[in-house]
């Protein structure tokens, strides 16, 4: 089966200047996402996880290597069919929830009734139906992140990239949002790449977990979790869940210590 999206020999070096040395942030790295899989990336802080996502999304160029999405090279722009949810709150404060979610559809050539239908269904899916006319400033951080997910969802992405989307939320909200992401992944059939620093989150959500080294980030371990497609946060109760998290941590521990020394 050919990869849905792939990185081949990709590295990213931030050019120096103003007396700073160039920074080798990532790679070289190889990654082939299987169609419809849920892939999580964990790694020590500053290892280039977010850079990996930006390169894959076409938001940042690869210094070396090739990036492909559905067989076509990705360069200079985000391809159609790719959705990204960021860690920071990216909701538009000047628009209400409905208009935030409809943002990517307005001016897309779709007729109003189709836009309305898609927005309503995304709002219902993310539990935002009663908040359509609220402004982001009136919502909690978790709700705003739901708005951003719904805004991505209406565009029917085939590849969804999540850059620590729950990093700013409290632990309980994170677990529940994890369940929602699983539901979203199952019902849309999209391929999902999740960047996270939380090992339990990666272990619970993903089909495969890639463990990255300290900067410049490379994959040092890729673990198949073997979970059924129908799953939720109750996985955490299983005995083999603890073993999986322990396995990830044993791969990551040395790298995290290195990363601490770097900074």
């Amino acid at each position: 089966m050919s990869a849905h999206a792939a990185l081949a020999g990709v590295s990213r070096v931030y050019p120096g200047g103003d007396g700073r040395a160039p920074l080798h942030a990532l790679g070289p790295i190889d990654l082939a996402l299987r169609p419809g899989e849920f892939f999580a990336v964990v790694g020590p802080s500053g290892c280039g996880k977010s850079t990996l996502l930006e390169v894959l999304a076409g938001l940042a160029p690869a210094s070396e290597g090739t990036v492909t999405f559905e067989g076509s090279p990705v360069a200079g722009a985000v391809p159609e069919g790719v959705g990204v949810v960021f860690q920071e709150d990216a909701s538009f404060p000047w628009a209400n929830v409905y208009d935030n979610v409809a943002f990517g559809l307005q001016g897309s050539g779709l007729d109003r009734s189709e836009i309305d239908a898609r927005v309503r269904s995304a709002l219902a899916f993310m539990g935002l139906r009663d908040f359509a006319s609220a402004y982001p400033a009136q919502l909690s951080g978790g709700m705003r992140q739901r708005v951003c997910i719904a805004r991505t969802l209406v565009l029917k992405p085939r590849l969804i990239l999540l850059d620590e989307p729950f990093g700013a939320l409290d632990a309980q909200t994170r677990l529940l949002m994890g369940d929602e992401v699983l539901r979203l992944w199952r019902e849309t059939g999209a391929t999902v790449l999740l960047i996270t620093h939380a090992l339990d989150e990666a272990a619970m959500l993903a089909d495969r977990v890639g463990v990255m080294s300290a900067r410049p980030g490379r994959f040092i371990d890729v673990v198949e979790t073997g979970w059924p497609r129908e799953r939720d946060s109750r996985l955490a109760e299983r005995p083999d869940f603890g073993a999986l998290v322990a396995r990830l941590w044993s791969s990551l521990r040395v790298e995290s210590i290195k990363a601490l020394g770097h900074t």
Binding site: A57, L59, A77, F86, E88, F92, F103, G104
Partner: peptide, 22 residues
């Protein structure tokens, strides 16, 4: 905030539309 401009890129807006809509 840079994340709003990144969002415009992810939505594949042209520079003119980014200026007007974001």
């Amino acid at each position: 905030r840079p994340v709003l401009i990144k969002t415009a890129k992810v939505m594949r807006l042209s520079p003119a539309k980014t200026a007007w809509r974001v």
